[in-house]
């Protein structure tokens, strides 16, 4: 069961864990979930769509990351997952 991660749980950052699976599943833990939960979900879904990825488990532990940070951490985690599969 291969997983990949990127980011930290420091303030303004997020830790993203991704894992290949047969369906899409998103788990969001955020200190600002009430205010920005929908936006976090949108950034993650938009990024996955732009990369053509449908079947994936994504877990984000968010400490107030801005959109570009979430996007960058997700892309790096996915690239790391790809490398893990390739090797």
């Amino acid at each position: 069961m291969m997983i990949a991660r990127c980011g930290t749980i420091e303030s303004n950052d997020c830790l993203i864990t991704v894992q290949r699976q047969q369906a899409f599943e998103l788990k969001i833990d955020s200190i600002v979930f009430d205010q920005f939960g929908k936006q976090i979900e949108k950034v993650i879904k938009d990024t996955l769509t732009s990369m053509g990825i449908k079947h994936i488990y994504v877990h984000i532990q968010d400490k107030g990351a801005l959109d570009y940070t979430i996007k960058a951490r997700l892309i790096t985690a996915l690239k790391r997952l790809e490398k893990t599969h390739a090797s």
């Binding site: 990127c6 801005l66 570009y68 940070t69 996007k71 960058a72 951490r73 892309i75 790096t76």
Partner: peptide
């Protein structure tokens, strides 16, 4: 290094 490069690029694109 990979994470830093991706983050910096995303930051420069956004801000």
């Amino acid at each position: 290094k990979d994470a830093a490069l991706e983050l910096l690029n995303a930051f420069l694109d956004a801000i």
